[in-house]
Amino acid sequence: MTVFVIRRLLQSLVVLAATAAIVFVGVYAIGDPAEMLIAPDATPAERAQVEASLGLDRPLPAQFLTFVVNALHGDLGRSFVFNQPSISLILGRLPATLELAFVAIVIALALGIPLGLLAGLKPRSATDEAIMTGSILGFSLPNFWQGMMLIMIFSVWLGWLPSTGRGTTGTIFGVETSLATWDGLRHLILPAVNLALFKLALVIRLTRTGVRETMPLDFVKFARAKGLTERRIVLVHVLKTIMVPLVTVIGMEIGSLIAFGVVTETIFAWPGIGKLLIDSIMRLDRPVVVAYLLVVVSLFIVLNFTVDVLYSILDPRIRVGRGA
C-alpha cells in the first residue's frame, strides 16, 4: 500500500507539472491583457508602466520561471482585474460550485440507481422502454437548452422558482451553504436539476447494464437455491457487484461536474468557479484562468486516488498494490 501511495503521488506530481507548463504557455501566449486594462487614450509610457507592473514586459520563459517559483510557495499569481491572489478568488467561489455539484450528484444517484434497477429487472417491458427513452433524452438534449427550458417553465410561466443567483445562505456545522435556508434551496433546485440530468441518464444506463449482466451469473442462481428472497439478492448481492463500475464512473463525473459546470453556472448566474472562469477568459485575466485549471487538475487527481481506494473496499478481489 505504501508503494502504491508513493507511486501515485509521483505520478500526480508529474501530471501537475506537465499541466502547469502546458496551461501557462497556452494561456499566456494568447491575447494581450493590457488592451483590456489600459484606457484607449493611455500614453506609451503609461502602457509600459502597466505592462511592467503585471510582468508582461518580460519574455515568456522568464514569466514561467517566476510562476513556478511562486507556485512552489503557494502563490498562483495575482488577478489582473480584481488585484487579489487568484487562488483566494477561486477558493472563495469553490464552496458554491461544490454545493451545486454535490446536490446534482445526489439527485442523479437517488433517482438513477432505482430507475436503473427497475429497468434492468424488467427488460423489454413498457417500464424499461419508458425509462430508457427518458435516459436517451437526458443524453441528447443540450445542457444550455435544458437550462433555458427550466427557467422558462418553472420561473417564467409557473413562477415557482427563482432563475438566477444563489439566494440567502446559512450555516450548517460552520459551513456556509444554500441548503440551510428555504430561499437558498429554492435558488439551488433549478441549476442542480439542470446539472444532474446528464449524469442521471448515465447512472440509469450503467445500473441497467450492470443488472442485466449480473442477474444470469452463477452466484445469483446459487443465492436463489439457498432460499434468499429476490429483494435481498438484488439489494445486497447484485447491487454490491454493480457498484464497482458505478464508483469509477461517478468518481470521475463528480470531477466533471465541478470542472465543466460552466454552462449551468453561467445560465443561472450561479456564483461559482465556472462563472468566474468565463468572466476571467473574457477579460484575459490569465492568473485566474491558470489557477482555475490547476485547481481542477488537482481535484481530478484526488478523485482518482479516492476511486482506487474505494475499489479495494467494494471488491476484495481488486488488490491496489498489485494492480497499480
Results as ranks from 00 to 15, higher is better:
residue 278 I to R: 02
residue 169 T to Q: 10
residue 66 T to P: 00
residue 184 G to A: 05
residue 314 L to Q: 10
residue 170 G to K: 03
residue 7 R to A: 08
residue 118 L to P: 07
residue 60 L to H: 07
residue 84 Q to K: 15
residue 39 A to P: 04
residue 131 I to E: 05
residue 149 M to S: 07
residue 241 T to C: 09
residue 304 N to I: 13
residue 316 P to T: 15
residue 37 L to G: 10
residue 172 I to C: 07
residue 86 S to T: 02
residue 165 G to H: 02
residue 73 H to G: 09
residue 98 L to P: 03
residue 245 P to D: 06
residue 246 L to N: 05
residue 40 P to F: 03
residue 191 P to Y: 03
residue 93 R to D: 07
residue 282 M to K: 13
residue 70 N to H: 07
residue 42 A to L: 13
residue 14 V to A: 12
residue 224 R to F: 00
residue 322 R to K: 13
residue 178 S to K: 04
residue 112 G to C: 04
residue 197 L to M: 13
residue 226 K to L: 15
residue 85 P to Q: 14
residue 317 R to L: 08
residue 264 T to G: 00
residue 116 G to Q: 07
residue 23 V to M: 05
residue 195 L to P: 02
residue 313 I to G: 09
residue 285 D to C: 11
residue 38 I to K: 04
residue 31 G to I: 09
residue 4 F to S: 08
residue 212 R to A: 11
residue 168 T to Y: 00
residue 1 M to E: 10
residue 320 V to M: 11
residue 223 A to S: 14
residue 261 G to F: 01
residue 255 G to H: 02
residue 77 G to E: 01
residue 149 M to C: 13
residue 307 V to Q: 09
residue 302 V to E: 01
residue 255 G to T: 08
residue 170 G to P: 01
residue 305 F to N: 04
residue 231 R to M: 15
residue 97 T to L: 03
residue 226 K to I: 07
residue 126 A to W: 10
residue 188 L to F: 06
residue 261 G to N: 08
residue 1 M to Y: 12
residue 67 F to P: 02
residue 315 D to G: 13
residue 316 P to F: 03
residue 219 F to R: 15
residue 251 G to K: 06
residue 178 S to V: 06
